[in-house]
Simulated assay, not measured.
Amino acid sequence: MDKKPTILVTGVSGQVGYELLRSLQGLGRVIGLDRAALDLADLGCVRDVVRATKPAIIVNPAAYTAVDKAESDEAMARRLNAEAPRVLAEEAARCGATLIHYSTDYVFDGTKDAPYSEDDATNPQNVYGATKLEGEQAITASGCSHLILRTSWVYGRRGKNFLLTMLKLGTERPELRIVADQIGAPTWSRTIADATSHIVAQGLAAHDAAWWAQRSGIYHFTASGSTSWYGFAQAIFASALGELAPKAVPIPASDYPVPAKRPANSRLALGKLNQTFGLSMPAWDDALRLCLSE
């Protein structure tokens, strides 16, 4: 590997991709591409870009993430979440690159009473989760060196996410009804990017393709701790709106019908990540306060 490896990052206008551009600086020659430069729906374009850039590492946060819309737009969700990752993986295998790809808690059905481990049986309950699982399986089958990082409840200061929705609605309405019987770990996009950069730095310091191959696999990759959407909203209001916060009313998910079924339990166990890379992920509420302090 040369002294300045090329790191190709997709989806850099998205909330995770934007943060990755910042976090990966200094680790190599970072090439960040948005949808205009790399349309993942165009599989031929995906192949051409990887072959032209010859990356040592491909980091792929780009995805079809409109969970409810995916129920009626299955073909495009599959193209972006399964077929594009398959092509990235095939091209990574072809040029000896490592693929770092992000997946989701939605590959599980949410019926387990404890946090899910990487080895637990998957059983997605919606199109988004099913297509993300297909992407995982395609990457694993490709034979490339890969890290599949399953995260959950991603938020940040840009894009569309629960944090920004709550900040907007919290100033517009005196009362908000928020689901209280779905549990997970809200995860700041910067937490994802910074933890990824720590792993990339370890891999580059090893100067050894076998390092990546030995660690290839699926890792759970969220903030630590857990809360409900209701608890998440309360924490947002307490940190950001104070006395101006609306009244938050806890409701069951059954009172808020949406096209895509969500898992009741989205908690992911982080032991494998810690043991393999020595990473301790921050508590979700600490990260939220940091995000809101900016």
Rank of each mutant, 00 (worst) to 15 (best):
W188M: 04
I183Q: 09
H198W: 09
P174D: 15
A195S: 15
Y256W: 13
Y219C: 11
E175Y: 02
A238V: 05
G225I: 10
P263T: 08
Y230F: 14
L241C: 04
Q234N: 14
G231E: 01
P257C: 09
W229N: 12
S239H: 10
S224E: 01
A235I: 03
I183S: 00
Q202P: 11
A213N: 00
S228V: 02
P174M: 10
S216L: 04
D208P: 07
Q202K: 09
D181G: 02
Q202N: 02
S189T: 04
A205T: 09
Q182C: 14
A240M: 03
T227Y: 01
Y230E: 07
Q234V: 14
A206N: 04
S254V: 14
P263V: 08
F237W: 07
R215Y: 07
S239R: 10
P259Y: 05
Q214D: 15
P252W: 03
E243F: 10
S216M: 03
G242D: 09
I192Q: 02
I178R: 00
A205P: 03
A245I: 05
L176R: 05
E172Q: 15
H220E: 01
P246L: 07
A185I: 06
S226H: 13
Q234I: 07
A209C: 11
A185N: 13
V249L: 07
W211H: 06
G217N: 04
G203M: 08
L204P: 00
A235S: 13
A253T: 12
I178A: 00
